[in-house]
Design a protein around this nucleic acid. Structure first.
Length: 591
RNA sequence: GGGGAUGUAGCUCAAUUGGUUAGAGCACUGGACUGUCGAUCCAGAGGUUGCGGGUUCGAGCCCCGUCAUCCUCGCCA
């Protein structure tokens, strides 16, 4: 007795507890001072409970209660009471209240810069990030952070049940250029040498396969020193998975099982299996993107040939003309809407946007006069156009049409409400190209990474037309966003060397960068492959938030700063000297 | 590196074509009140309009620069 320590949380007391003497701890969410009577809403992670302080019971306690303010930390003891007529249906604990007999002030609080209890965003993101300890105290943020916890818990549950084992790999590793920019850490003991933070544990997990840990996973922190976006942070978390003695379908099956388990466990919804498979080439052709949102149709149709026959010089001269038929949308777009959407598509890099409203007897458009009657008929057939439809056209080099068309298609899908925003549509995009030609460097680059195996039947293409070769690669796509990607790896030394050659990595470079890895391949590397998921993006989707920063406890701003702790920061000269630095890099603009 | 949006009280926002003493809600301080639950009522305090420069009789508003936050292109094998 006399302890301030809680007997219950602020979310659990119900009518059946009436009569019990309990102690609650928590933060003061709100106070209503009635003079002789004070009401407090006490909040913790689990909920809110109303506590009443009556001057008739203990004047000293009541006086103390009157001094409580937002976010004071208190312990209150009293009897659970039925609220009778005064129930609050908005509160899970609203049928009861605590009639306090004692109150302990555990800590005071300065008035918070924003309200903790509201569901709406209470302040600008800048203020929220600076006072992240308060922001994270908000029920809304606590729900997301807990959801994240449940997601990783469910992932571990499933993988553990499938004989996977969790193995940690180092944060301090070595730089292997190519790919994203590395974060570097200077070595004190080896002045002039640097560790690199991992962009992913790729090579180490492959080495774990060589070592015989045939089913590995890790919630791996990854680092990439590139510019930030609403879905990109310089450090993020991947669920990293690798399996030995498998082909692509084994990995995909496992991941489908994992995905279903997580979604069912966390949001209580069933996901249809098997997931749709779509070839990379088809995805690019029909949706102009390698991660199409398949919740809706709006397939893209290539009308280059027809375009060349018309008198419309833009179409006539463009290497590629592609169209989208927005079914039944003609009436929904005014001239002003069409101007807006044109501007939108041009922001995405299009040179322009042509449109036609389909009517029974004609195609209403500034450009239909350039189409002969028979061309118009062909166009209607190709696009399956019916009266009331709205056709959009983008003309450019084929690669240049992808971005604008994808953006247009996604915008139309959203604006025309062609899908249920709550649907979770998972699909696999497979058969990615092995290589991409880089015109600047006059060489091929690995499209995924250089440890990827080509399709068995495509080895023959490797010498003459490597750009036609396809990879044993698979991306997991959820509602138009890539949420995981993986490949079957090259496990034979000779074949790995072959691929390195093709991307122009000479023996010396191979040895220098990947010597340790090539060495491992010589000692009985089993066939293996794996996948990695962006955990943060999963949380975004399952929590329904638009920013990756909402899914992390302590995210960085777009300029890579932590506004709470003030990172990055300058350091003592002494620290720098120990690391072998004589001078400090000069701040931009201060020379 | 490029393009765009925003920056006014602790917080969220307002302030006519450039015009006199920059307002409101919430929060805060003091007071009243024994059944509220976004309590209510009375009174009060609170501002380097991000920062620096310029134009002007006069700048929160116009111009130049700069900083910060966000969105986006490049970038992210």
């Amino acid at each position: 007795m006399g302890s301030w320590r809680r007997t219950h949380t602020c979310g659990e007391l119900r009518l059946e507890n009436v009569g019990e003497t309990v102690t609650l701890n928590g933060w003061v969410q709100n106070y209503r001072d009635y003079g002789g009577l004070v009401f407090i809403d006490l909040r913790d992670r689990y909920g809110k409970t109303q506590i009443v302080f009556d001057s008739a019971i203990d004047p000293a306690m009541h006086e103390l209660a009157r001094s409580l303010r937002s976010e004071f930390v208190v312990s209150a003891t009293g009897k659970v009471k039925d609220r009778g007529e005064a129930k609050n249906p908005k509160l899970a604990t609203g049928d009861i209240e605590i009639k306090a007999t004692s109150l302990t002030l555990l800590n005071k609080s300065e008035p918070p810069p924003f309200e903790i209890g509201t569901e709406d965003e209470p302040a600008s993101e800048e203020i929220r990030l600076r006072y992240r300890f308060l922001d994270l105290r908000r029920p809304k943020m606590q729900r997301i952070i807990m959801l994240r916890h449940q997601i990783v818990t469910a992932m571990r549950e499933y993988l553990n049940s499938q004989r996977f084992c969790e193995i940690e790999t180092p944060i301090l590793g070595r730089s292997t250029p190519e790919g994203a920019r590395d974060f570097l850490v200077p070595s004190r003991m080896h002045p002039g040498s640097w560790y690199a933070l991992p962009q992913s544990p790729q090579l180490l997990k492959q080495i774990l396969m060589v070592a015989g840990y045939d089913r590995y996973y890790q919630l791996a922190r990854c680092f990439r020193d590139e510019d930030l976006r609403s879905n990109r942070q310089p450090e993020f978390t991947q669920l990293d998975i690798e399996m030995a003695f498998v082909e692509a379908e084994d990995v995909m099956n496992t991941i489908e099982g994992l995905t279903c388990h997580v979604v069912e466990k966390v949001v209580g919804r069933e996901v249809k299996r098997p997931f749709v498979h779509i070839d990379y080439d088809d995805a690019m052709e029909k949706y102009a993107v390698d991660r199409p949102d398949l919740r809706f149709g709006l397939e893209i149709v290539d009308i280059t040939e027809l375009g060349h026959q018309t008198e419309f010089s833009v179409f006539k001269n463009a290497p590629c003309v592609r169209a989208i038929n927005a079914k039944g949308a003609a009436e929904k777009f005014s001239r002003k809407n069409l101007d807006d959407i044109t501007a939108f598509v041009m922001e995405q890099g299009a040179k322009g946007l042509a449109w036609m409203k389909v009517e029974a007897d004609k195609l209403q458009s500034p450009i239909s006069k350039f189409f002969s009657d028979s061309q118009q008929t062909t166009l209607r057939q190709k696009l399956n156009a019916e009266p009331g439809d709205l056709l959009f056209f983008v003309a450019d080099k084929r690669e240049a049409t992808h971005g604008p068309l994808n953006a247009l298609r996604n915008k139309l899908g959203k604006d025309l409400e062609l899908y249920d925003p709550n649907e979770l549509h998972f699909s696999w995009v497979v058969k990615f190209p092995m290589f991409e030609w880089n015109e600047e460097d006059k060489r091929y680059y690995a499209a995924h990474h250089p440890f990827t195996s080509p399709l068995d039947e495509d080895w023959d293409l490797m010498e003459k037309t490597p750009d036609k070769a396809r990879a044993k690669a698979y991306d997991l796509v959820l509602n138009g966003e890539e949420c995981g990607g993986g490949t079957i790896r090259l496990h034979q030394f000779e074949r790995q060397m072959k691929i390195f050659e093709l991307i122009g990595l000479d023996k010396e470079e191979q040895e220098k960068r990947f010597g340790f890895f090539l060495e491992a391949l010589k000692f009985g590397a089993p066939p293996h492959g794996g996948i990695a998921f962006g955990i943060d993006r999963w949380v975004m989707k399952l929590a329904g938030v638009e920013s990756i920063r909402e899914t992390m406890a302590f995210p960085k701003t777009q300029r890579g700063q932590d506004l709470m702790m003030g990172a990055p920061s300058e350091v003592d000269t002494k620290q720098l000297r120990e690391l072998g630095f004589d001078t400090v890099p000069v701040k931009k603009g201060s020379s």
